[in-house]
Design a protein around this nucleic acid. Structure first.
Lengths: 227, 227
DNA sequence: GAAAAATTTAAGATTTTATTAAGATTTTCT
DNA sequence: AGAAAATCTTAATAAAATCTTAAATTTTTC
């Protein structure tokens, strides 16, 4: 697997290289966007990790450039931690995933693997634009959710939580994992906000309290949606 | 759990020590990086808390040194308050988490716990996905257990116990070992809680009381699952 | 058959999850 | 910008499930 890494902070690019090399990926590492562009044109890449803020062409532009060549190419963006989530959302538009600095290298590795898996899967079948689970439709693109054909109005966080569970159906997801994936922040103790959201989602999905059909509780572990 | 604390501000190192001691961690506290390095070489540590700015070798270098020895070792960095978040990103590179001074000691404790949790989880990851024993399926990821294709509802401790026995199938495991591995606490005398759990597992696995098929009693020694 | 070890039982303690509602924050609308 | 509406977080309480304990019982060993 060939992975492009672009970051003008040398330390970060180097670190990423070390960790990904360790997983036996081939790394094409650049500190300047011009060089990266050249690489994009000449090498058969499998994934790109781009710093959003970079001199010259920024990550966003490069992302666009790659997407023009291949629509579903997996791209992970690196961003500095910013309070304004919308700003991040805007900047990382078009990326498959983004990671805020400073990040745990292991998390990066995990996400790289996940993005590659998704990509491979996509090229085999069609990446699930629409998830259908027993009467429940979740449309990723339009951020819509239908229950037996009727629209269920979910708030943004509710939608993200449901989507994450649905994407991982068959697996148990802990509150901690859910929080860190959806909120993209560290989970600290005594935080039952995930639980409250789960409750609201269940309510909106008209779940039977005693025996929920979609989101099941796995005691002591987390939540899951059955396969 | 052994935790290394390195900060040249004596007050801070001492404060961290007090709070972590209170959580029953063993603290190796140093004000100078040279001494800390010696400790790293000689003690089996579980986590390191490093001040970024420190005379001699700085936190970043020590971090690198530790990572060379063990790639995924959990490291938390302490940094002075800096406006530029990118700068922090660079400085704390390679750490799993960072905390800016001044910090709330309770938050530090929470982050320490979180980092240790993640580390333990990571180390558990590289085990068998699915264990199949003569009609019994144990799925680690989904925390599910099937008996002849039918779901057996196990509680968290029950699942962990069964998994431990299954991972060590062919070997006899004493109650004491089971307790210390599953509960991660010291086993004290007159403690038959393991036994009670074994009983409930056997019940759920529909074991023949006289001649259990899965979990066998090895008299005077412990329990085992045949290979 | 007696002693040691293992099992069973069930009640009370503890932990985890669910619910609720109020207050804080963010977004939308004018 | 300011008000209104929607959304999110927090904290307190309730409910449910699980875990521990201790005593009574059975099984195994010698």
């Amino acid at each position: 697997m060939n992975i492009l890494v672009l970051d003008d902070e040398k330390e970060i690019a180097d670190l990423v290289e070390v960790y990904l090399n360790n997983e036996n990926y081939s790394i094409y590492k650049f500190y300047k966007s011009e060089e990266a562009m050249k690489c994009i044109d000449t090498v058969k890449l499998d994934l790109a990790i781009l710093d959003v803020m970079i001199a010259g062409k920024d990550g966003f532009e490069i992302c666009k450039y790659i997407r023009e060549k291949e629509l579903n190419f997996p791209i992970i963006m690196l961003t500095a931690k910013v309070e304004d989530k919308d700003k991040i959302a805007g900047l990382t538009l078009g990326a498959d995933d983004y990671i805020t600095k400073p990040f745990n290298p292991l998390e990066l590795v995990a996400r790289v693997k996940s993005a590659l898996r998704r990509y491979t899967k996509y090229n085999e079948k069609n990446e699930e634009e629409l998830i259908y689970i027993d009467g429940l439709e979740i449309k990723r693109e339009t951020h819509q959710c239908l229950l037996y054909g009727k629209i269920v109005e979910l708030t943004p966080l509710e939608f993200d939580i449901l989507l994450y569970l649905a994407n991982n159906r068959g697996h148990v997801v802990s509150s901690e994992e859910l929080f860190e994936r959806v909120w993209k922040e560290k989970y600290l103790d005594n935080n039952n906000t995930v639980m409250v959201h789960i409750r609201r989602i269940r309510e909106k999905l008209k779940e039977d309290k005693r025996n929920p059909k979609f989101i099941k509780t796995v005691w002591g572990v987390g939540y899951k949606i059955e396969k």
